[in-house]
Design a protein around this nucleic acid. Sequence first.
DNA 1: AATGAATGAGCATTCATTCAT
DNA 2: CATGAATGAATGCTCATTCAT
Lengths: 211, 211, 211, 211
Amino acid sequence: MIKKQEVIPSMIKNQRLVQERRQQIVEGAVRLFIEKGFHKTTTREIARECGLSIGTMYEYIQSKEDVLYLVCHYIHSLLLEKLHSISSHHLTAKEMLASSLTQYFQIMDELRPYVVLIYQETKSLPSEQMKLVLAREEEITLFFEQMLVRGIEDGSFQIPPSSVRLTAHNIVVLGQMWAFRHWALRKMYTLKEYTEKQVSLLMIEIQGVRR
Amino acid sequence: MIKKQEVIPSMIKNQRLVQERRQQIVEGAVRLFIEKGFHKTTTREIARECGLSIGTMYEYIQSKEDVLYLVCHYIHSLLLEKLHSISSHHLTAKEMLASSLTQYFQIMDELRPYVVLIYQETKSLPSEQMKLVLAREEEITLFFEQMLVRGIEDGSFQIPPSSVRLTAHNIVVLGQMWAFRHWALRKMYTLKEYTEKQVSLLMIEIQGVRR
Amino acid sequence: MIKKQEVIPSMIKNQRLVQERRQQIVEGAVRLFIEKGFHKTTTREIARECGLSIGTMYEYIQSKEDVLYLVCHYIHSLLLEKLHSISSHHLTAKEMLASSLTQYFQIMDELRPYVVLIYQETKSLPSEQMKLVLAREEEITLFFEQMLVRGIEDGSFQIPPSSVRLTAHNIVVLGQMWAFRHWALRKMYTLKEYTEKQVSLLMIEIQGVRR
Amino acid sequence: MIKKQEVIPSMIKNQRLVQERRQQIVEGAVRLFIEKGFHKTTTREIARECGLSIGTMYEYIQSKEDVLYLVCHYIHSLLLEKLHSISSHHLTAKEMLASSLTQYFQIMDELRPYVVLIYQETKSLPSEQMKLVLAREEEITLFFEQMLVRGIEDGSFQIPPSSVRLTAHNIVVLGQMWAFRHWALRKMYTLKEYTEKQVSLLMIEIQGVRR
DNA sequence: AATGAATGAGCATTCATTCAT
DNA sequence: CATGAATGAATGCTCATTCAT
């Protein structure tokens, strides 16, 4: 599911090296993109930041947009990895979901600048790569959707089938919201407070009261 | 509330002319920004699109970022105007809110590209202007917050005071979500379905079940 | 016939200025192209040579290839202009042709570097512009073709119709040859000697001996 | 006469290997140069096309210009080889020349893209190598010059000594013209027609009518 | 002898902004 | 007030060549 679908060609043959150098590039670029945005970051800056010469960097990518794609891919990988490592050895489906949500909100807090970056720069990708990134974004939704489906199947949740996906979207968005509205939310709530309130709301939605 | 807080100096004295020309600029720019984004739009294109010469345009702004600020300001004006014109001659606070939410979702649908633009380009503003734009964004939240407060005061809603603002944020975000996740949501829901489900969820939140 | 078919768009509105500046560009570029060839000349060098800033130069052209096109166009204009100003107030068609040939060879000598440039760089043009340049090249052939036709019509020349165009091509090429084989020819012949011999040969061809 | 005048140093000692690899390089490069020109072909492309690594290729050349020189040398070798293999077991000098001319025109047709390449890219050679290439070009002229001299000596041809070399040049150029003016000539003549007309013209020149 | 990763000077081109008219 | 020609620093990207392995 988190398959590394590398669509970007490289001039370099040694695949191990390609992986390694691209990791370097991504790590340098992500810092800069967060700090000043994709458009205001120059390829020269990226090269300097990741310790490669401009020429060498271009042996591993084809265009500046490729760097953005690699960065988005990397962020989604981080996110999906953390998501899938969520511990779920709980007894009831309800408990498991609540715990997952809490952990998800925690992740959103940790990756706050990354989440904002994805939100703001995905649109700068060439359409082909944008599609791939959006597909990965949907994977996150799918993660929660499947969790919900399991709860429905064992009778724990009462969400009508037509609402399952929307509920998953709501979960995802209310989590990301902590990142992209942080400028406002932080003035009133701590992560803990925010998490408690939103999880509580989502649990109501999931238990199907009045739906 | 929708006070035109003009922070942008102009070379031109005649204030009526300044208003008029800036409206021209905004209307041209917004089309282009939606189509190709702020960074990929050139000042020349903006001038051409709004029927001014590049020189004349610069008599009314100081930098390209000013245009972005004017555009953001304009979008928020549109939004706030529509929001404040929401009809509210209903009997109960509950009914009034439900109707407002429905109308708000309708507005989000109409202004979809504008909402997305605000989401993606606000970060390109100089920090001073970004603050002003975010303040206007909070005004939208405030609109719903006040509506909730009225409902609480007359006993219709049971939201703990500490959650009022968050609920307002939730309303705003679940509305904007129809715009910025439209690429995924449109595959499953019509605006009507989306509105019904989300309004229903928000009404539960507001009526304070298990909170 | 020497119609200035300007196909190259410019950012500048004032057409007189466009003409003037392009003339500047062409005059600078032609010197450099002759000296070092099209590919080894940089746009910065062209700008410097013609006294424009690089930015200003690009207001009058769209690409480096455009400069090459303008240069080719200019050279053909020079050539065609000189060709059409060939005096031809002679009595017989035969005399007129001989004189024209002599003057044509004289022109080829004067424009030697230009002729070589056209020969070597036309292929670097985008195909659309190459076609236009080749069409102008054919105009030169046409010039002699028409002269031959007139001589045939009044009975002075005995060239079969199917050979008229080839004869015109031969005239043109034997003239250009003085330019592009000059490195070898100059070792043995002066322009005068070369002209006499080739004109004499061409006159035989035209008088149709054994054809 | 077709002596391989190797002026290009190599890192490799084994001369047989040097010959072999350079042949590989030339065969790859000539295809690319014809297709897209010398300047628009990259060394990487040449290496790929000839099946060598870029590093290996550079063991056998010193610069990209060296490849161009090798290519020019190769083309001249092809040309001179074909030229010298022209069958000449005819009786009279006149017949022999006519046959040679016909076969030469045939060769020019076969090698059309090569001839054009030489015409357009020789100027890109460093002057030292350009001289060598031009010397080989003169060898072609010399081939015909010698044929003419033999005809003069046995009384078959009546060309004044001062015109022999020019006549040889004319032969060479009228042959090459079929290649470099093919874009125009092909519209009116087949190779056969072209050959007949030009050979006929050249035979007049050689038989010295009115000279 | 072969390889291919690394280099960075250099290139064509863009574009926000200015300012003389 | 309006115009649009002029500017040049800055940008993304290329590619011939080298050299450690």
